[in-house]
Computed example of a mutant assay.
Amino acid sequence: MRWTRVALPSLTDQAERLVRLGVHDLAGIPAARLREVAARGPADGLLVTSAPASALAPLLRRAEGHEEKDGFVVEDMTDVDLFAPTVDVPDAPYAALGLDRGDAFLDRTPKESVPELLGAGRSPMTLAEGLHWVLQDPGVLQRNACFMTPGSRLRRADGSYDARTPALWISNGTGRDGRERRDAVKLGWCWWGNRHTWLGIASCGERLPV
């Protein structure tokens, strides 16, 4: 299977964008420290912090040329910050490399796709990685071409996983989203065992401490 190579701004440029947005404060890391780690990171990675998903979502925007609207978390995901990685990740900040939106997995369930990703030596993308990706490259989200982040799930008290899978897509402004949110970036969820023709299964190739 072929994976899409993604061109991102340099880590130093990414750090500057995060500082402008105040993400360093959300993550509890001084701006100078974030710039320092970015300067020694890989040339083609995604800089990922520990900022909570609920705080990052409102910072998301559509790509240039679209109306400026705040991103948002769906109303029935008030526990979004409890969705934690199910895969090993370095202490943040770290770099995620080899990002792929997962278009090859359109109309496939996370349940089916994650074992295949792992078998190919890749790792399902976490919600934090997906949010930081859209922050740095808003154009990665397109109508009918968005993605799930199955590397983050909510573990129940009994040790089992909640069936919701975090996903990022573009709101149609229907239902509880409200018309005013049409075309805004939406942090929502889909069932672990459901198929969606417009949601890929995002992944990365590796993660490196910086």
Rank of each mutant, 00 (worst) to 15 (best):
192 W>T: 02
120 A>D: 07
46 L>I: 08
28 G>L: 08
201 I>Y: 00
53 A>W: 02
97 L>A: 04
37 V>R: 03
132 H>V: 01
93 P>A: 13
30 P>G: 11
135 L>V: 06
36 E>Y: 12
73 V>K: 04
58 P>G: 11
195 R>F: 13
110 P>S: 04
6 V>I: 14
51 A>I: 07
139 G>Q: 13
173 G>M: 14
96 A>H: 02
178 G>N: 15
150 P>L: 06
84 A>R: 01
11 L>I: 15
91 D>W: 13
169 W>Q: 09
4 T>R: 14
134 V>M: 00
16 E>H: 08
38 A>F: 00
51 A>C: 10
80 V>Y: 00
38 A>L: 01
170 I>N: 03
202 A>F: 01
32 A>K: 10
204 C>T: 06
97 L>V: 07
145 A>N: 05
57 A>W: 03
112 E>N: 12
33 R>M: 13
27 A>I: 11
11 L>Q: 04
79 D>C: 08
84 A>S: 07
198 W>D: 10
4 T>E: 05
172 N>L: 13
157 A>H: 14
58 P>V: 11
66 H>Y: 12
15 A>L: 08
35 R>M: 12
47 L>F: 04
100 D>R: 04
16 E>Q: 11
149 T>K: 01
90 P>V: 14
157 A>T: 14
166 P>A: 11
190 C>W: 12
195 R>L: 12
82 L>F: 09
128 A>E: 06
195 R>K: 15
184 A>W: 03
49 T>M: 07
29 I>C: 12
139 G>Y: 04
197 T>C: 09
36 E>I: 09
44 D>G: 09
103 D>H: 11
97 L>R: 03
162 D>V: 00
107 D>R: 12
208 L>V: 15
59 L>G: 09
11 L>R: 03
209 P>Y: 08
67 E>S: 00
176 R>Y: 12
20 R>C: 13
145 A>V: 07
180 E>M: 12
29 I>D: 09
122 R>W: 09
133 W>K: 00
43 A>Q: 12
99 L>C: 11
121 G>K: 01
188 G>W: 03
45 G>T: 09
105 F>E: 11
121 G>W: 00
155 R>P: 00
166 P>I: 06
129 E>P: 07
188 G>I: 05
159 G>Q: 01
87 V>E: 05
3 W>C: 12
50 S>I: 09
102 G>L: 04
26 L>N: 13
36 E>A: 15
57 A>V: 10
39 A>R: 06
187 L>V: 07
141 L>C: 08
115 P>S: 06
103 D>R: 11
65 G>Y: 02
208 L>F: 08
79 D>K: 00
200 G>C: 05
159 G>S: 07
88 D>V: 15
179 R>C: 14
24 H>I: 08
13 D>W: 15
53 A>S: 15
38 A>R: 00
6 V>Q: 11
138 P>V: 01
18 L>K: 01
22 G>R: 08
61 R>F: 07
50 S>E: 10
170 I>F: 02
88 D>Y: 14
115 P>N: 06
54 S>A: 13
29 I>V: 13
93 P>H: 07
183 D>C: 13
21 L>R: 02
134 V>G: 01
